[in-house]
């Protein structure tokens, strides 16, 4: 880790799933000091935690369990400390995932189910547009850009009721053909993207900078 005064410290959680090298490099490029580690303590201590993820929901939950990932995420959020989930790292934040008829419990930060996409061509692979709500911090300056997606599963229904006492999460949607799914969520300290900002060129770099702007420096 190089030392840049004022740069936020970010941990990319290394639990065996995800193109972690790309995530580390992209977050570094966006201006953070990045540590790739499976350490629970380091994951808690960082200014920001990135939870990457590719592959199967069940396998990722198993991998997360081995590094107490769900607990680290929950502890951070309880303290209002930022977490960014990417791809399957977003999917596991929901209540459950269904693959090949088998349901696996997720981290349960949000209600809802991750299920097979209904589009004609799956995986949904490539650069797609996003439809962020007004006031999105995540997509500030990049709401009209395309981002790189590669996934076969998604969340079709946002089920969290809007409360009167807390700010409603900002939910961003995308469509693959006629199949509409959640492509990003901003929920207080918990942000997540179904697409890969680390593979989305300059637009992705800006998104990561927007996230880093929500962290305090270390």
């Amino acid at each position: 880790m190089t030392s840049t005064p004022g740069a936020p410290c970010v941990v990319v959680l290394d639990y065996g799933f995800g193109n972690v090298r790309s995530a580390v490099r992209a977050v570094e490029r966006a201006g953070a000091e990045v540590e790739l580690t499976a350490s629970f303590d380091r994951a808690l201590a960082a200014d920001g935690l990135v939870v990457p993820g590719v592959g199967a929901f069940a396998a990722c939950m198993q991998g997360l369990a081995e590094v107490q990932g769900a607990r680290a995420i929950g502890r951070r959020l309880a303290g209002g400390r930022p977490v960014l989930g990417i791809c399957v790292g977003m999917q596991v934040l929901f209540a459950e995932g269904v693959e090949h008829g088998v349901t696996t419990a997720g981290c349960g930060e949000w209600p809802g189910r991750v299920e097979r996409l209904r589009a004609k061509v799956v995986p949904h692979m490539g650069w797609n547009t996003v439809d962020p709500p007004a006031g999105s911090q995540m997509f500030a300056g990049i709401a009209a850009e395309r981002f790189f997606f590669v996934h076969s599963y998604g969340v079709h229904d946002w089920l969290q009721p809007s409360g009167e006492r807390i700010a409603a999460p900002r939910v961003t949607w995308s469509s693959h053909g006629s199949d509409r799914f959640v492509s990003a969520v901003e929920n207080g300290p918990l942000w997540a993207t179904q697409f890969h900002p680390e593979k989305s060129g300059d637009a992705g770099a800006r998104l990561l900078r927007n996230w880093l702007d929500t962290l305090r420096g270390c």
């Binding site: 490539g126 797609n128 693959h176």
Partner: peptide, 8 residues
């Protein structure tokens, strides 16, 4: 909108 045709 839909996913873009990729040029590789």
């Amino acid at each position: 909108m839909s996913v873009a045709v990729r040029v590789i």
